[in-house]
Design a protein around this nucleic acid. Structure first.
Lengths: 115, 115
DNA sequence: TAAACGTGAAACCAAAAGGTGTTATAAAAA
DNA sequence: TTTTTATAACACCTTTTGGTTTCACGTTTA
C-alpha cells in the first residue's frame, strides 16, 4: 500500500490463498500471534507477511496490539458475515435448483463411495 | 465437477464487485442472458464485460451456449459451495445463530464430503 | 549507554488485473 | 449479395498486487 487508504474489503482480503491460510492459522491456534510466529508458516519474507496482515487489518479480519516489542495479531471473524450474507442469496438459488444439485451430489458421491 | 484446473478460483472471481453484481444479476433474472443485456447494467465496455464473464467461466460460476449470433450466459452457483465450506470453518468463532438455509446446505453437503 | 531484537515503512520491481479501442468472424436482415 | 448485429480475439495501456531489500524506530537486554 503506497499512499492512499486502499480500503480492502473482505472479498478482496479472502481472495488470496496466503491470507486465507493466515486466517485459518489464527483460528487454529485460537490465540494472538506475533508476526514472527506467523511468518514461520510461510515461504515469504516477514515484510510480505506484514503486508498481508495489513490487508487483513483493513478488512477488519484481524486486530493487533503491541506487547513489548511484539505486535500480536488476533482473528476477527465478524466481517466474514458479510461474505456469509452475500452467499445466502445463492443458497436460496440452490434451494430452488435442488434437483440439479441433487444430481450433482449423487454423481460426485458415486465416484468416491463406490468400492 | 466444480472448478478443476482454472486460472481463477472462486475466491478470486468473487473478489471483484463488478463480477459479484453480474452473478446477482444472473441470479435475479433466473435465466440466461447475452453479453449485450448484461453490459447494459454496467458502465464499462462490452469487451470488459466479456473479460469478467471469462473469469467467471474459468471459475465455473457461469456457463454459456451459442444461440444464433448470441452467446447466452447462465449462472452456475455450485462452485460457491467451496466458499461456503471454507466459511463454515469460522462458524464457531461467531455467535452460532446461523442462517437456516446455510444449515440446510451444510446438511446436504454432508452427504458427499467427509462429514 | 550500547547492542540486539521485533517490527513498520520506504523504495523498488515484475506480473497480473482491469480497462480501452480495433479488428475479425459468424449470423440475421435487407 | 450486402449490410448490420453480436460477440470473440488481439494489441495495448495504466493501476494494483505480491514480492523483495534496505533502513529507521522503539523495546528489551547486556
Amino acid at each position: 500500500m503506497p499512499v492512499a487508504e486502499a480500503r480492502y474489503d473482505v472479498f478482496q482480503a479472502v481472495a488470496d490463498s496466503t491470507r486465507r491460510s493466515m486466517l485459518t492459522l489464527l483460528a487454529e491456534t485460537d490465540t494472538e500471534l506475533p508476526i514472527s510466529r506467523i511468518a514461520e508458516h510461510f515461504p515469504i519474507s516477514r515484510t510480505a507477511v506484514n503486508k498481508h496482515l495489513h490487508v487483513l487489518t483493513e478488512a477488519g479480519l484481524v486486530s493487533n496490539r503491541k506487547v513489548g516489542r511484539e505486535t500480536r495479531y488476533k482473528l476477527r471473524p465478524d466481517p466474514l458475515r458479510d461474505l456469509q450474507r452475500w452467499l445466502t442469496y445463492f443458497d436460496r438459488y440452490w434451494d430452488n435448483k435442488l434437483i440439479a444439485l441433487k444430481a450433482f451430489v449423487e454423481e460426485d458421491d458415486s465416484e468416491r463411495v463406490e468400492g
